[in-house]
Write a protein that binds this DNA or RNA. Structure first.
Lengths: 349, 349
DNA sequence: TAGAGCCTGGACAACGTTGTCAGATGCGGG
DNA sequence: CCCGCATCTGACAACGTTGTCCAGGCTCTA
């Protein structure tokens, strides 16, 4: 019963539930408004005795500075926005955490949202963040046209695109070497004797997917292997369709002996499919996955450093805000081939 | 070179890089300030012709409403804070995403931060969020004393604790049935003939860890098995120490035949240890892990529904804000035993 | 003891928006 | 033709904070 009462006290109706303001603190401490402000912000020019009185009033009233008003006055929000595809995807966890750490080191908070790979939702999120006047944005773009950001950039919102480049505008970009990584991964399979190699990846409208596909084609071409259409499955995303695509490749009268998978989710599904087959099919996946080393065989992957992507992007963001970074640039981080067994299986025809 | 110029335009010095305000829009459209406000907010009482002129000016200037000022005026920020332990932990990804989805459905943005299991950092984060006047807080507590939140609760900040209960204050709590889940998991091992069962878990000061330990003890007691100290390892967290703890249990002259692990990270490490042993040791872990079904043997786990935790918590939060939820309550979500093989191995003495 | 200089404290405006209220305009009816 | 009413528009204050600037009191020195 006392609970109900207490909760009822805080119902809507009064702004912020009637929090005390600096004015209230000043009145209680018997000092001027600005003096309270000075104490709260640790500015000099307040005698210890006055400071004590003010501090006492603050504690007694449970005063907490209203940063909304502060932001309005100062023009900096000390917060940055992060727009990514899906917070729940294990690839974005470390990236997100890395951005957060850098933000924290600069005294900024992180606001984030998932675009769910929907360009409209991405725009909606980005603009909402701009309306809050975040100091900067780290964006993993879903769409490929970011001209809607022009006014924001001009207005001084620091912006860095990660994982995929910006579309139609000139902005900082931090990406992995998707092309090179995929090429190396496929070349690795070729080096182990494979010639009929399947590729299962996301829609080529997604930049990373297109680059990885390009890497696949380049490796095949370098080896003088003509690619057959039946070996490629593009744009499949959901597990069921990935499963079907893989099964079809393997059921072909002249089946693939190896598969290169375009991202972590596809890799996981294909692992499941292969687990149901007795014939050994080689596999190299883009993106590392947890426990990949404990499977039989271990899963060979092209790993990218998600944390480094996030860290690099966030650091560039704050350098933009410092003013120590002038020209937009494109940074490409290397990938790393991790051999664990699945990519070293010989062809079994 | 043009880039440098463009970026230089947006250097600090002028607030928000001199964004246009409603006043500017009003001047350009030749209307009053309030009329612009009406158009921006879709309020009625504006002739189509006037609206067109205003809209034109908005587009021409690239105006975007300043939500900081709006918040200051209206008293609601339409944002909620989420404080968790580590964004990069795969357990929190789905939880975080679920909270975000609910927030989105209510038109709110999500600000989040990682406490890194440090009570001080948790408090710092929570208070920073309160200073921003978030409408509500979802907290996965690191500390066990939350009296510092008293003034905030009184001021009307909706608050829900998830995964672990609040300390020293009366607040909404959403948790998994850690005790029951652990008891069932251990009972499962006992049912398969094990009597010497090890437990490796986190520090008992963490509520979930303590509850799971209690579940372990209860199951053993129910079966009339006295627990030996050598079977329990508490407070180990980092992989190296977990590894040592597991090795010691297995090296004992009278070793354990099964291990119950207290969370996903411990489970993963122990899987690695067991992979190096030939003797079959049974394993049941708390928390599900990806690919657990593909290992040999598959890993039996007590799974909790992280997304449901987040969703439930966020929904309660918004019901607090609605005013449809009056008394703080404690909600316990069930866990689910997923048998995959490792927990069904017979004792091998 | 008077004057200069320093230190502390406070009054006031401004940040960009929204709520209130009153003024202006246009229209129809008496 | 004038009044009343409805509709549209704009002036103004307020939200809670910080930056500017000035007043008053003190100390120190000549």
């Amino acid at each position: 019963m006392p609970d109900v009462t207490r909760r009822a006290d805080r119902l809507p109706g009064n702004r912020y539930g009637n929090r005390p303001t600096m004015k209230d603190v000043a009145a209680r401490a018997g000092v001027g408004l600005k003096t309270v402000s000075r104490v709260v912000n640790g500015e000099p020019g307040v005698t210890p005795e006055t400071e004590r009185r003010v501090q006492e009033a603050i504690d007694a009233l449970g005063f907490r500075r209203n940063d909304s008003a502060r932001v309005l006055r100062k023009g900096r929000t000390a917060s940055i926005g992060l727009v990514l595809e899906d917070l729940a995807d294990p690839f974005y966890g470390p990236l997100s955490r890395a951005v957060e750490e850098v933000a924290r080191a600069h005294g900024a908070l992180l606001i984030n949202g998932s675009s769910a790979e929907d360009p409209e939702r991405e725009q909606e999120l980005v603009l909402a963040l701009c309306a809050r006047r975040v100091d900067g944005l780290v964006v993993i773009p879903a769409g490929d046209d970011h001209r809607y950001l022009e006014p924001e950039l001009k207005a001084g919102v620091a912006t860095v695109f990660v994982d995929r480049p910006a579309g139609q505008i000139d902005a900082d970009v931090v990406v992995s070497d998707n092309f090179g990584g995929a090429r190396d991964g496929v070349a690795h399979l070729i080096a182990h004797g494979h010639r009929r190699i399947g590729f299962i990846g996301d829609m080529p409208r997604i930049h990373t997917a297109a680059e990885r596909l390009r890497g696949y084609r380049a490796a095949m071409e370098d080896a003088g292997i003509p690619v057959e259409d039946a070996w490629m499955s593009l744009g499949v995303t959901d597990p069921e369709r990935v499963r079907r695509a893989a099964e079809e490749m393997l059921a072909d009268p002249h089946p693939v002996t190896a598969i290169f998978t375009g991202n972590n989710r596809v890799t996981v599904t294909v692992i499941r499919v292969l687990a149901g087959h007795t014939r050994g099919v080689a596999l190299v996946g883009f993106d590392d996955i947890e426990l990949a080393d404990l499977l039989q065989p271990g899963v060979t992957v092209v790993a990218q450093d998600a944390a480094a992507l996030g860290r690099t992007a966030a650091e560039r963001l704050f350098r933009q805000l410092d003013g120590t970074l002038l020209a937009p640039d494109r940074i490409e981080l290397p990938t790393r081939l991790v051999t664990r067994g699945s990519g070293e299986l010989p062809p079994s025809d």
